[in-house]
Design a protein around this nucleic acid. Sequence first.
DNA 1: AATTTCATGTAACAATATAACGCGAACTCG
DNA 2: CGAGTTCGCGTTATATTGTTACATGAAATT
Lengths: 136, 136
Amino acid sequence: MTAHAQPELTKNQSLVFGSLSSAGGPLTAYAILDLLREDGFRAPLQVYRALDKLVEYGMVHRLESLNAFVACAHTGCSAHGAAAFAICEKCGEVIEFAPDEALKVLNEWTKAQNFTLAGMTIELRGTCGTCKAEAV
Amino acid sequence: MTAHAQPELTKNQSLVFGSLSSAGGPLTAYAILDLLREDGFRAPLQVYRALDKLVEYGMVHRLESLNAFVACAHTGCSAHGAAAFAICEKCGEVIEFAPDEALKVLNEWTKAQNFTLAGMTIELRGTCGTCKAEAV
DNA sequence: AATTTCATGTAACAATATAACGCGAACTCG
DNA sequence: CGAGTTCGCGTTATATTGTTACATGAAATT
């Protein structure tokens, strides 16, 4: 929701963020764990703790419908609002976008309901244009 | 997305749908399993298989951010579009609503991207008005 | 110096979900 | 009819995802 100052990352947080950034797509916590075993990671908690912080800082998003995590597409990852994701079920690509108009409408709903928003998940599942083109 | 004809439910599907309906809120698959043990349920697959069908029929929604399932708020559960959910983190209440305007915007995005939509998840987490009022 | 905070490490475990196999009823189409 | 097919169901085992509980050490606080 709100922008977060980008803090110094700890060693584990840097490693986790690095693996997600270079993956260029979503990874599960256990996939990250496997990638980081050679860096000394031994247990899921090391990954989950780092992910918690990175999500809190807005540098990583959790994809609820994949139980996976992805580095925020805003390279600098400075101010940004909630994100939406289009997930291609064929190729696995995830496109992050900022659905400003939709957010506005949803925010209006929360105001009308006196609902205080802490977080929002918007995920679209389907087939991306590229995969449809290939599936001649 | 599209409306589904409401088919005859099998015995297991009826039991699962019944437990969700009378719960009046979200239940995890394992909570359903425990509720239905006295009806002969023994294994998670019995629940998951029924849930798969009920979700397919549009009678049950999956809440990705809770790993839980809820009966559709449309009592007759006839034609309806995608649903959105506001989840109160204090009391656990889940409010289902139809965010028509937001859906329209998101659908436009998918058209512009040539992305074929198979399903959509919109979930808001926060605090409902009632809980805020109580937290004087 | 005593206290608190925070990142970390480790082991054990809990919660969620699926794979693989077999059985029998119902449907279908020759 | 009878062979083939589909579908719902049951069971066991297993895979995947996430957390609890406890301990250590380094840095910040007072």
